[in-house]
Amino acid sequence: MTLGTFEFVHRFLIHVLPKGLHRIRHYGLFAKGACADNVARARELLAAAKPEDQPASAAANPNRPACPCCGGRMIIIEVFARGATPRYQPTAPTNRIRIDTS
């Protein structure tokens, strides 16, 4: 697609926010920064018990070790020796990336 200079600048500036406004990408009850605190507070307010089937931390369950980067639970798919070819072959994603050129 070829655009004239004016049209390109016009389309580019559509994405620029006015001065004083900030774009908020992650917010609400399940925002990553305060998700655990918010869910714990909601359970407290609702007087709901903590689910029994979920361990308190990832390190408590030896079958699901903690990720060294983020601390989340890892699911080990396969362990193989150095130089060996893994048996597990990941499948292609089912949804395709759509590029909008408008």
Results as ranks from 00 to 15, higher is better:
2 T>S: 15
2 T>H: 13
2 T>Y: 12
2 T>D: 14
3 L>I: 06
3 L>G: 12
4 G>Y: 11
6 F>W: 04
6 F>I: 15
6 F>C: 04
7 E>P: 04
7 E>F: 07
11 R>H: 13
11 R>E: 15
12 F>M: 08
13 L>G: 08
14 I>W: 12
14 I>S: 13
17 L>S: 08
17 L>W: 04
18 P>D: 08
19 K>T: 15
20 G>N: 10
20 G>P: 10
20 G>I: 13
21 L>Y: 10
23 R>M: 12
23 R>F: 14
23 R>V: 09
24 I>L: 15
25 R>T: 14
25 R>N: 15
25 R>K: 15
25 R>M: 14
26 H>A: 15
27 Y>F: 15
27 Y>W: 13
27 Y>A: 15
28 G>M: 09
28 G>Q: 12
28 G>A: 10
30 F>G: 02
31 A>S: 14
32 K>I: 10
32 K>N: 06
32 K>D: 10
32 K>Q: 07
33 G>P: 00
33 G>C: 02
33 G>V: 11
35 C>L: 12
36 A>R: 14
36 A>F: 12
37 D>I: 11
37 D>S: 12
37 D>K: 12
38 N>V: 00
39 V>W: 00
39 V>A: 06
39 V>M: 12
39 V>Y: 01
40 A>Y: 00
40 A>T: 07
40 A>W: 00
41 R>S: 05
41 R>V: 01
41 R>T: 11
42 A>D: 03
45 L>C: 10
45 L>Q: 13
46 L>K: 14
46 L>I: 05
47 A>M: 13
48 A>F: 02
48 A>E: 01
49 A>E: 08
49 A>L: 07
50 K>P: 03
50 K>H: 05
50 K>F: 02
50 K>W: 05
51 P>H: 05
51 P>I: 07
52 E>N: 03
53 D>S: 11
53 D>R: 11
54 Q>P: 02
54 Q>Y: 09
55 P>L: 06
55 P>D: 05
57 S>G: 13
58 A>P: 03
59 A>Q: 13
59 A>R: 15
60 A>S: 14
60 A>T: 10
61 N>L: 06
61 N>S: 09
61 N>F: 02
62 P>C: 07
63 N>T: 02
64 R>E: 11
65 P>I: 07
66 A>R: 06
68 P>S: 09
69 C>A: 12
69 C>T: 10
69 C>F: 06
70 C>W: 10
70 C>E: 05
71 G>L: 08
72 G>N: 09
73 R>H: 01
73 R>T: 04
73 R>P: 11
73 R>K: 03
74 M>A: 04
74 M>H: 00
74 M>D: 01
74 M>T: 03
74 M>V: 07
75 I>F: 08
75 I>A: 10
75 I>G: 05
76 I>M: 08
77 I>Y: 02
77 I>C: 01
78 E>C: 06
78 E>Y: 03
79 V>T: 08
80 F>K: 01
84 A>Q: 05
85 T>V: 06
86 P>G: 03
87 R>A: 09
88 Y>S: 04
88 Y>G: 03
89 Q>I: 11
89 Q>L: 09
90 P>R: 01
90 P>I: 04
91 T>E: 14
92 A>Q: 06
93 P>I: 05
93 P>S: 10
93 P>K: 02
96 R>I: 07
97 I>A: 04
97 I>P: 00
98 R>A: 11
99 I>E: 02
99 I>P: 00
99 I>H: 08
100 D>H: 09
100 D>L: 13
101 T>P: 01
102 S>R: 06
102 S>W: 00
